[in-house]
Amino acid sequence: MGGPGTLSYPFFFRWPSSPPAERRAFPGGSPAGNGADGRCSIGEGWREMPLVKTEALVLAARPLGDTSKIVTLLTPELGVIRAVAKGARRPKARLAGGTAAYRVIEALLYRKEGRELDLLSEAHVLSSSPRIGSDWRLFLFAGTLSEVALAAGGEGGYHLLKTALELLEGGIEPRSVSVFFLKGTLEAQGLWPDFDCCSACGAPLSGGGAVDVPAGRVFCGRHRNKASLPLSAGGLRLLEGIERRAVLKGRQDGRVVGEALKVCLALAGYHFDLRLRSTELLAGAEHLLKREVLVKKAEGGKG
């Protein structure tokens, strides 16, 4: 995938496909100047807009014209912001480094309430994620977390996502980090089920249980339905938070983390009406890698 920083934006993000909406967001006319040459020019209206300084996480970027980008930022207090980074695609542009995915920046923005797009004036890099940027697997895990953060509206999710990305960058097992982040996001939205006892009979779930995702309830073996997702006793303990510290240190059993992650992804997908494209890409890529390993083992055995 190349060296650090070579993945400039998550290619699996879905972007608005309506140019007129982007043009309406720009004071003084189209974001691409007069629309003839595709170059980005700033209308006079930008100068009348207030400047805002904020820390931000760069989640994604898309090309705008020949030389510029539209970036998606997650901020601590302003939530999700989409802004134009004028000239950021030019070689040695001053905004180029500050618009790469999963960098923490200090952003200076021209913004006005009610507009769809702001203007990114300055982007000072506070920290970057070279490990995530050069490892396709970590990049896709980071993409999954970013998709959920955006779907959740970004409210209160900045510090949680920033911590999760730092854990990925620090080498913590990515599935464990994903469980940590998804649980925290669902809890913050009031969407996390009660794993203490069976929702039907009140019996303790010490031996395991099952999660009914649409109902947001957890049942024992006697009251589970066919569509519910099974959870072992270890998976339940993990999701209850008893072994949270061990999860972040990567000491959990892989099978247990896998079933816990499956439940978390199902809950996030249902409640946020989200089809996680990055997760699908990751699953497909890992399946191909497993097949490749099996083929090599088989060929080695024949030799």
Score class of each variant (00 low, 15 high):
residue 84 V to Y: 03
residue 86 K to V: 15
residue 89 R to V: 05
residue 92 K to E: 15
residue 94 R to H: 15
residue 94 R to W: 11
residue 96 A to N: 11
residue 96 A to L: 09
residue 99 T to L: 07
residue 99 T to F: 04
residue 99 T to P: 12
residue 100 A to N: 11
residue 100 A to L: 14
residue 100 A to M: 11
residue 103 R to H: 14
residue 105 I to V: 15
residue 106 E to H: 02
residue 108 L to Y: 06
residue 108 L to A: 14
residue 109 L to C: 06
residue 111 R to A: 14
residue 113 E to C: 03
residue 115 R to C: 06
residue 119 L to N: 10
residue 123 A to E: 11
residue 125 V to H: 02
residue 125 V to D: 08
residue 128 S to P: 08
residue 130 P to R: 01
residue 131 R to E: 14
residue 133 G to P: 13
residue 134 S to T: 09
residue 140 L to M: 12
residue 141 F to C: 12
residue 144 T to L: 13
residue 146 S to E: 07
residue 147 E to L: 03
residue 147 E to D: 08
residue 147 E to I: 05
residue 148 V to R: 01
residue 150 L to V: 13
residue 151 A to P: 14
residue 151 A to S: 13
residue 156 G to K: 00
residue 158 Y to P: 12
residue 164 A to M: 01
residue 174 P to V: 01
residue 175 R to L: 12
residue 176 S to K: 00
residue 179 V to A: 03
residue 179 V to C: 10
residue 181 F to K: 00
residue 181 F to C: 07
residue 182 L to G: 07
residue 182 L to Y: 06
residue 183 K to M: 05
residue 183 K to A: 10
residue 186 L to G: 04
residue 187 E to V: 08
residue 188 A to F: 00
residue 189 Q to R: 12
residue 191 L to A: 13
residue 192 W to F: 14
residue 195 F to D: 07
residue 196 D to Y: 03
residue 198 C to P: 14
residue 200 A to T: 11
residue 201 C to Q: 05
residue 204 P to F: 11
residue 206 S to Y: 06
residue 207 G to A: 12
residue 209 G to Y: 06
residue 210 A to R: 05
residue 210 A to S: 15
residue 213 V to N: 04
residue 215 A to G: 14
residue 216 G to V: 04
residue 221 G to I: 02
residue 222 R to C: 12
residue 224 R to F: 04
residue 225 N to F: 04
residue 225 N to P: 09
